[in-house]
């Protein structure tokens, strides 16, 4: 399975605040000999907001992406964003569960001359790296020793609940296992599936801040020097507001918030810019120390 090609659905965040996620994902997949082929003319998944306005239209948005994928001939569609992952899977679940939803989706896809929904498998990079590639193979491909400190793996909510197959529902561990495979020590992080508040940082700001503060504080208490994430929104929330949290709480929290793909990509030999590590806001000092611009010596594992 060396040169597998996956259909790729980036989602809107990858073109904005989550650009580093896309950069590191593409780099990591390239280093593993996997290809991501972007879905042509994909549209927004609708996220949580669209579902608040109109359920039909929210399902249609996600369904269009799935229909496009099918039209292109993708059997599997990879999406790195947890919200996109959930929305795409949710429409599949609803179409299966409710005939009335299935009918509406079928009709409107026909209007746009798109094929009816079939079994396109929606997948997350975490699942692909864990089950298709496997930690052992990633270990064997690693070219750098880990010189950094302990990391807390934060899975967030929508990847594992309630439609996800990417990891276990109550106690996901796959990100931990992948990072450990390239020598990264991970801490026991009890809040790993607690919500970051999603868009609340932008709406009810103090509440959003508080949720993120709790996550950051618990990770730091467990001895983590950084947090690894699988979702662009989690990364953004934890990363962008630390200065404000420091101001509000008076606590010296300054943790780098990394995408798990950045850490794996680094171990496999990616450089700072191709992994988007230069785009981090918090924990800059730690990032510069762990991921030097010019790593003097590159050691081989094998």
């Amino acid at each position: 399975m060396t040169s597998a090609t996956y259909g790729y659905y980036p989602g809107c965040s990858m073109r904005g605040s989550g650009i580093a996620y896309e950069e590191s994902l593409v780099t990591l997949f390239r280093l593993l000999g996997l290809t991501l082929q972007e879905l042509r003319d994909w549209n927004c998944c609708g996220a949580t907001s669209y579902m608040c306005i109109d359920e039909n239209l929210a399902f249609l948005l996600s369904a269009r992406n799935l229909a496009l994928a099918q039209q292109t001939g993708f059997r599997e569609l990879v999406t790195p964003c947890s919200a996109c992952y959930l929305c795409l899977r949710k429409v599949q679940d609803y179409v299966q569960r409710y005939p009335q939803v299935a009918e509406r989706v079928r009709d409107s896809l026909a209007v746009a001359s798109l094929p009816p929904l079939d079994a396109v498998k929606v997948r997350h990079p975490l699942e692909i790296l864990f089950t298709d590639v496997e930690p052992e193979r990633i270990r064997s491909k690693a070219v750098r020793h880990w010189h950094g400190g302990q990391v807390a793996c934060y899975y967030g909510c929508q990847l594992v609940r309630p439609y996800g197959e990417a990891d276990r529902l109550h106690n996901p561990t796959r990100m931990d296992e992948l990072l450990q495979a390239v020598g990264v020590p991970t801490v026991k992080f009890a809040l790993k599936t607690k919500c970051c508040g999603g868009s609340l940082t932008g709406t009810i700001h103090p509440v959003g801040l508080r949720l993120n503060y709790i996550l950051l504080k618990e990770a730091a208490r467990k001895g983590a020097k950084a947090i690894a994430t699988v979702c662009p929104l989690c990364q953004y929330n934890l990363d962008a507001y630390q200065a404000e949290i420091r101001r509000e709480t008076g606590e010296a929290l300054d943790l780098p918030i990394l995408f798990f793909t950045q850490i794996l990509g680094w171990a496999l030999g990616g450089d700072v810019r191709s992994l988007g590590l230069h785009r981090a806001i918090s924990g800059r000092r730690v990032i510069d120390e762990w991921f030097p611009q010019h790593p003097e010596e590159v050691e081989s594992y094998v």
Binding site: G18, D54, L60, R104, R279
Partner: peptide, 26 residues
């Protein structure tokens, strides 16, 4: 950090999308 794009993202077949969504509100 290059994470704020001022570009207004838009899909190619926006007309088709609107047709698909049209009249299906509920």
């Amino acid at each position: 950090t290059g994470r704020l794009s001022l570009h207004k993202e838009q899909i190619e077949h926006v007309k088709e999308l609107q047709a698909e969504l049209a009249g299906r509100r509920g």
